[in-house]
Amino acid sequence: MSSSVTTAEGVVTLDQRRQRGLWGDAWRRLLRSSSGRIGLGITIFLVLIAIFIPLLMPYNPATDRNFPRRLLKPSWLLSEDVREQKNIDLLEHPFGTDDLGRDIFRRVLHGTPISLTAGLFTVSMAVVFGSLLGLIAGYLGGWFDTVASWVMDILLAFPSILLAIAIVSASNSPTAFTSRLGNAVSSLPVLRTIFDPQLFNAMLAVAIVEIPIFGRIARSTVIAVRHQEYVTAATALGVSGPRTLFRHILPNSLAPMLVQATLSIATAIISVAALSFLGLGAQRPRPEWGRMLADARQYLLQGSWWYITFPGLAIMLTVLGINLLGDGLRDALDPRLKSKD
């Protein structure tokens, strides 16, 4: 929309004015901070890999086998004799090969969409359910608030990984509802290349564990603004409860939600990888980073350091990038810093 208004300084389009709002300011501050820039850069780079790798470099983990090239060092570290003998180019296997002779570089690349989707999906679920629960609890108050806060306290009383493990193992039972849900989701066209039912359950578990974090943010926002005049005014004007909640109250929690969601994506990626590492997430031969580490662990004693090194570095780079972005966002959106500007 590009309507314009006339002010003392002349005609100003509303679009220009809007850019000076909270989000415009935040965006500029994000780009000015070095952690924000680096984090954004790493994240965009990984998102591009996640989008384009499946298109440019189709990969079928089920048929990828090459036993003669089993457990080879990164090809640039192999001696020329070995490379000639096995007919390998200098950069053919930059990260080496695994126990089935698969190219680790290729598998690490194809792990990117899996982990990014897992992080994003997990946190989206936690945000939706958590903020709904928190908003309603804070708005309604009374017994609903008491029960909802009680449930959130209880979920927070378990160490996160332990709760996630318990939920996954319960939901992996063949008769459980979540198993059927996982089967259904992982047979959908695009998602099939990303999830298997167990990985889906792991994501669900991590999402449940993160619900109270967002529930608390939403609830505290509602309680903080519920009695402010503009909310009373909205109610007095006859605005319905749900509309007040979503149009007038919810926007207040967007900034802290966004920061927490970004940082939670990083945690969720580690948690899902950890569950896969424990055998409770992605299954073989899916190129999920945590799963690859679980496989690699069996060849550790044989000294195949490259097999454990690169999937782990991939997790670290991803989490680092997203954490930096989250830090940058927090600084950019923190109103206390804004006044110092």
């Binding site: 990083a266 580690i270 990888a273 950890a274 590492f277 945590g290 580490l293 690699a296 662990r297 550790l300 004693l301 000294g303 350091w305 454990i308 090194t309 999937p311 782990g312 997790i315 670290m316 989490v319 680092l320 954490n323 930096l324």
Partner: peptide, 23 residues
Amino acid sequence: ALLGVSIPIFWLGLMFQYLFAIN
């Protein structure tokens, strides 16, 4: 501070095992 919260500790454990115990 940044690496500490970004390194998956199960991976760090494996790397340490390789370096200090195996290598």
